[in-house]
Design a protein around this nucleic acid. Structure first.
Lengths: 254, 254
DNA sequence: CAAGCGCGTTGACGCAGATCAAAGCGCGCG
DNA sequence: CGCGCGCTTTGATCTGCGTCAACGCGCTTG
């Protein structure tokens, strides 16, 4: 299953996991449930890694030996069908915790979209650590609950929304993302950056690249958005776009 | 948002929540994380209710004041778009815990498919209880993790599978469900009971009733299943059906 | 700077599944 | 027992999006 991971992941040479205290992502991750004076215990089980764009660091079906915490960059999480059809179940930015699962093997794959920085925890070691820090377990439950809500929203999108509504929902959701999750300078609140390819967007929204491209072009033609570059979209009429996203529109400009 | 809940839920007259020790669903629910001698504390915050078929007991958008635990029967969980399009995100049987969410209001609705028996917990009371029983919090995290895995599987289904594959997946999943989740006598391992309507199935699989009906008829015509009654399906060729479900088939008998 | 390649856009056409319409069919009820 | 009603099935037709194909554009490479 780990065919794509030709070379080992890059272990950061000069500091392989011992400065949780200075980690920029801590404030936004589950790690902030651990008190500052106990951070050394967390650091002891963490290993910092870099992951190059396109490289996968979790492979569906592989034994689930580690948890991961994203500290920089973005990953796509996905599942595959035997014939290659792919569903991207989410994108994970800084602060995102990965690998929650009771099962002995990963139920999805993860691959870097941009250059990433991640923290790897041994599953067993983190589990024993959790016994000493119930606050962190609480945080994990919160995180999982929130992801569950997001997953249900995505099911609604995949099962019942039109291509137009899916793209609108995607853009609105991206525009509402907290700054730290994107890992770049803010720009205007209505400027949406898309580090992933059209193919990734299509596989996230259950569409084809062609439909994604065509639909974006249409939204642009209607003056709802601007597309200054492939990876940048500016929302011009946020309210109207949001109306489409939530299915209020339906009529109006088709 | 609570338009459909015309009458209040039925509070069981003779025992309104005080015998967790004899609860048939405990073995399969998060409640089994609590030691037998502490069950009285759990019982103190629980209220037993009955819910008639078709009656809703959670309404999306309402303030989330309670958690629920299903002890008998089945509920459908769903989200609506303003124009009435519906996505059923799951079915909850005995042992299923409902209401996990950080948000102050419910993010989905729940309605009984069959006559149900549920346990209601005050959100605040249960939360203080959780502080004393970290084992239960651990169980909740496990439950949430498993649901997350299931949700991702469903996203794959909704985003990338054909109608045929969706129905096959649905039937296989139902047939593999642990007996206690169905709340009825087993029958043959390959006999699948469907307490929900075709409309519910359609809204769960992101299809229409017509497509569900037609596809089932087709599967029957190919000798993969039998349909002795509307709410009963017998899987005749489990391996073949499973092949379709996981997308291995594609060719073969269309 | 020409060639090659990955990615995105655009157009023409086809089809899986939606929509529209009309029967069955089981079941409770008068 | 006949009637009505909700659910399901089946058929005919339509359509949003997928598929196939061509082309453009920016980047890398030699």
């Amino acid at each position: 299953m780990s065919v794509t991971r030709a070379r080992p992941l890059l272990v950061d040479p000069h500091r392989s996991g011992n400065d949780c205290a200075h980690c920029g992502a801590r404030a936004h991750s589950v790690c902030n449930a651990i008190d500052a004076r106990d951070l050394d215990r967390l650091a002891a089980v963490a290993v910092q890694l870099s992951v190059e764009p396109g490289r996968s660091f979790i492979d569906e079906g592989d034994p689930a030996e580690s948890f991961f915490n994203v500290t920089a960059g973005t990953a796509k999480l996905f599942k595959l069908l035997p014939d290659g059809r792919r569903q991207i179940t989410g994108f994970a930015g800084p602060g995102h915790f990965l690998g929650l699962a009771v099962s002995a093997s990963y139920s999805f794959s993860a691959e870097a979209v941009e250059l990433m920085r991640i923290c790897r925890f041994s599953r067993t070691k983190l589990r024993t650590l959790l016994d000493d820090f119930p606050a962190m377990e609480k945080r994990l439950l919160e995180v999982a609950s929130n992801e569950l809500v997001a997953a249900q929203e995505q099911m609604l999108l995949l099962g019942r929304k039109t291509a137009r509504e899916r793209l609108a929902s995607f853009l609105i959701a991206r525009s509402e993302m907290p700054v730290h999750c994107l890992g770049h300078k803010p720009g205007s609140a209505e400027t949406v950056l898309l580090p992933m390819t059209r193919s990734d967007i299509a596989d996230y929204l259950g569409l084809t690249i062609e439909t994604v491209s065509r639909t974006l072009t249409k939204l642009k033609g209607e003056g709802l958005i601007e597309i200054p570059s492939t990876e940048t979209i500016i929302i011009r009429r946020h309210v109207a776009l949001d109306g489409i996203a939530t299915g209020v529109d339906s009529g109006g400009t088709r």
